[in-house]
Design a protein around this nucleic acid. Structure first.
Lengths: 137, 137
DNA sequence: TTCAATTACTACTCAAAGGTAGAATTTAAA
DNA sequence: TTTAAATTCTACCTTTGAGTAGTAATTGAA
């Protein structure tokens, strides 16, 4: 029960860029070193984030990445969805198709509350709320 | 963000056995058909559940499986741990080692509440609480 | 005692996540 | 204009979860 590495990496990178947007551009090489993410894997993820529109890339020497939209508009759930980290509200925790109040699995009732809270958190948290000066990178 | 298939299957099988312990023995073939789990994969999982002590197997003709301990003593969290479905309380949601109040990741604060509820649920729910007559199998 | 229904064991395949390699392209600075 | 620092692209490798195949071992019933 945990997020995919790609989702974790993407959140950390986007958060870092959001917190340093005034600053200057950061390259994949720098991000890889600062965030301790394998360089080649990071560039692959950055490519996806560019294609899906989260960020823009500035190519060539002195290049790097910048957010396309304000940090306050980037929800964690959108990042998770990009990397197939389903938080689908209806899918059954025991894997038996769709779960709802009339068609329950054995764990449905107990799962409701933690699931809702978790989903709410990923839906309502933006890169903006995440900003945190003394945090691990 | 979801449970492994193996964990899902294991919970469903154990729950079914728990709900039919008075009854009679169910074989892997029957369980596979009733619960719609691939037979060969199920027998593999049953083997693990026997080795880890959740169930005992009765070999030979008319054989099958039965719980080793009362359903009220089998916690979901123990099943998850058996199949590497970590719900480790300290491990970081963003994958940066250990997370606690003095060593936070950027998502730590928001993650606390849903994580605690989820963990509490898996720790406190036993096969016994799960019993549910009108549920999907 | 035979036989069929059962679990147990070993080894394999398949798919997806995670990660790597190398070369092509872009571009600002020297 | 050259060059080095950057992104981009395509293809590959590795690991792990998911699932399959075949056969040996066990055992109650006929």
């Amino acid at each position: 029960m945990q997020l995919h590495n790609t989702s974790q990496y993407a959140i950390r990178v986007l958060n870092f860029i959001a917190n340093h947007s005034d600053d200057r551009l950061y390259s994949a090489k720098e991000l890889s070193e600062i965030l301790n993410i394998p360089y080649k894997f990071l560039t692959k993820i950055m490519g996806i984030l560019v294609k899906t529109g989260f960020i823009s890339s500035i190519q060539g020497r002195e290049g790097g990445y910048e957010l396309n939209t304000p940090a306050s508009e980037i929800k964690l759930i959108d990042i998770l969805n990009t990397f197939n980290d389903e938080t689908d509200n209806e899918s059954c925790v025991l894997g038996i198709g769709i779960c709802d109040s009339v068609n329950k699995c054995a764990l449905h009732d107990q799962w409701m509350e933690p699931k809702s809270l978790m989903r709410k958190m990923f839906e309502e948290t933006t890169l903006n709320n995440l900003t945190c000066k003394d945090c691990k990178l």
